[in-house]
Design a protein around this nucleic acid. Structure first.
Lengths: 137, 137
DNA sequence: GGCAATCGGAACGAACCAGTCCGATTAACA
DNA sequence: TGTTAATCGGACTGGTTCGTTCCGATTGCC
């Protein structure tokens, strides 16, 4: 019931990126210095976020990343899913997975999807725009 | 953004216990067979749930566990916290922890407590009574 | 007083996460 | 046009946590 550190870092970095506006070119090194996230880790995260379609990447000199959507269009759930994979409280919530030995006569499963939706809804309700409006120290 | 297997098992076992009523004496072996959870794991979970105050334990022959509160009084959040520890999305949400190097000028932190509360609220809104009313196969 | 049954804590193995490093690709410059 | 420099992208290693199992401590029954 906790975010991984990587997801945590990703949120911080995306918020920093959003403060630069949606048209700005940002390098991993730049955001790393700005947020305090170690550079190699930042690179890894940016790549993963780009792979999920939240950022577009440009290689070579002067390259970097750019927000693909507006800050208002990106939710906390999007960022977390990009880094951690699909938000599913239990293994049986993931479609296509049927590893759970208890599944055949599990009395709880029918209710879990509702719980899942509630948690996911809470995360989707928070946009990146809200997060980036942090009280500037 | 996922429960550990132990927490998952704990929910299933507590739901099974609730179906027996709040006054029933239940051994770990009994619930293990009923739910399909491996016995040693079930023992460990019952112990942890008892330590959190959700169950009372009785040792010796004919001993076992008993629900301390009614099923209506126990929420999903209670069970998860008993097994996984406090529900805190990020390390900085836990009181007394200040390990995060980004903390001093983190622009996101002020919003995270709100997110934390929303997720926790979603879990507290689901009572054990609801879960145990599973559609009987 | 001995026996059986049950809880409680300690130890082991495996999987995942976090972090680091090096190669591939691209644009800018001479 | 060749070279250089800067950046992304994927592969690898170490550490931590999770999950499981086993054995000892305690209690009630015969």
């Amino acid at each position: 019931m906790r975010l991984t550190s990587l997801a945590d870092y990703a949120v911080v970095m995306m918020a920093a990126a959003a403060r630069h506006g949606s048209g700005a070119r940002l390098s991993a090194a730049m955001l790393a210095e700005e947020t305090g996230v170690p550079l190699p880790t930042a690179q890894k995260l940016m790549g993963r976020l780009a792979g999920a379609g939240l950022l577009v990447s440009a290689r070579g000199t002067g390259g970097g990343f750019e927000l693909l959507r507006g800050a208002q269009e990106i939710s906390l759930a999007d960022i977390i899913e990009a880094v951690e994979g699909p938000i599913a409280m239990t293994a049986c919530s993931e479609t296509g997975r049927h590893d759970c030995q208890l599944e055949k006569n599990c009395q709880v499963k029918p209710h879990l999807s509702a719980v899942n939706g509630a948690v996911r809804g809470a995360l989707q309700g928070v946009s990146l725009a809200t997060l980036s409006q942090g009280a500037v120290k």
